[in-house]
Simulated scan of single mutants.
Amino acid sequence: MEYIIQTHQLTKRFTLEPVINQVSMNIKAGEIYGFLGPNGAGKTTIMKMLLNLVKPTSGEIKIQNQSIIATSYEYLRDIGSLIEYPIFYEELTAYKNLQLHCSYMGYKDMNHIKKVLDIVGLQQSEKKKVQEFSLGMRQRLAIARAIVTKPKILILDEPINGLDPIGIKEVRELLVMLKQQYGMTILISSHIVSEIESIADTIGVLNHGELIEEIPMHSLRNKTHSTVEMVVSDTTKAKQLLEEAFNANVQIIDGTTLHIQKAYEKPSTLTKHLVLNGVDVNEVETLHQSLEEYFVNRINGGKQNA
């Protein structure tokens, strides 16, 4: 398995207390890695360490099998990034800003600039000065600058900030396209689970500077569960019937309501079994645990049943 970004016990202290505490993360080549955590969890600090903007106190960083030290810089040619609030030459146009960026990155294909501006939805604004841009337009330009040189790796810190719902959808589609068509590896941070879950291949959950979970998305979906809620005429008898027949985990919520977990049969099968054995079923509903609920629980220290 090829990892393009790895950290081993990465730690950063600005005072005695670590801001980042022994984080070991592994990002596969060609995947979208979603970095999730509340504001202040340390996501930006880790991204800055990957880009050598902040030096680690201890631990190791390897990018494309190269160990990164304080003086490393050549590896940055293969990385596009958006960290915190993007800075531009305000008196210059969007096109000119990207042209300058390509020049100092040593990228020669200036014809690619117009294509990238079109991709991020700024084709009508390429001649407008950046000082006239809205927050959302600046964010689109920052994404354009990150991808214009066709880097192998994208590091994007909260890239949907300032975007409207249409813009957010377009960014999601753009990132998937960059992965599929260009094979880019993308590390994207957010504190909004719903904006990550639809595109990420792997999730890393960071809280208080510690990586509390790193898990493939397909495994994560298997860990979240559904609960079947039933309103029945006899909860005690229904509980006994379901546990004996299906080895289900059944809880009596009140005098008429059951919650059934780990029931691998369809709700219709459970209902039929109860009715055939003399229990009336008045209501049936499937309650799904969302990924957002799962992450909130993990960040708050809760345990999940697999």
Rank of each mutant, 00 (worst) to 15 (best):
residue 45 T to P: 03
residue 8 H to E: 15
residue 200 A to D: 01
residue 293 E to F: 07
residue 294 Y to C: 03
residue 128 K to F: 05
residue 24 S to H: 09
residue 220 L to Q: 05
residue 219 S to F: 09
residue 45 T to R: 07
residue 117 L to R: 05
residue 94 A to D: 05
residue 116 V to P: 07
residue 211 L to N: 09
residue 144 A to V: 11
residue 50 L to S: 07
residue 156 L to N: 01
residue 40 G to P: 06
residue 101 H to M: 08
residue 290 S to W: 13
residue 256 T to P: 00
residue 27 I to C: 08
residue 170 E to Q: 15
residue 29 A to S: 14
residue 132 E to V: 00
residue 138 R to I: 04
residue 96 K to W: 00
residue 72 S to T: 15
residue 297 N to S: 15
residue 185 T to Y: 09
residue 186 I to C: 06
residue 15 T to M: 08
residue 44 T to D: 09
residue 202 T to E: 13
residue 290 S to T: 15
residue 216 P to Q: 13
residue 227 T to L: 10
residue 174 L to C: 11
residue 252 I to S: 05
residue 277 N to Y: 06
residue 188 I to Q: 03
residue 254 D to P: 13
residue 203 I to H: 01
residue 134 S to T: 14
residue 163 L to W: 02
residue 260 I to S: 00
residue 286 T to Q: 10
residue 183 G to C: 11
residue 36 L to Q: 05
residue 5 I to Y: 11
residue 259 H to Y: 12
residue 176 V to E: 11
residue 200 A to K: 05
residue 182 Y to G: 00
residue 1 M to N: 12
residue 127 K to W: 08
residue 84 E to S: 04
residue 50 L to G: 04
residue 176 V to P: 01
residue 68 I to W: 03
residue 14 F to Y: 15
residue 121 G to P: 01
residue 36 L to M: 05
residue 294 Y to H: 09
residue 293 E to C: 09
residue 180 Q to Y: 12
residue 244 E to G: 00
residue 17 E to M: 11
residue 178 L to V: 03
residue 165 P to Q: 13
residue 279 V to F: 07
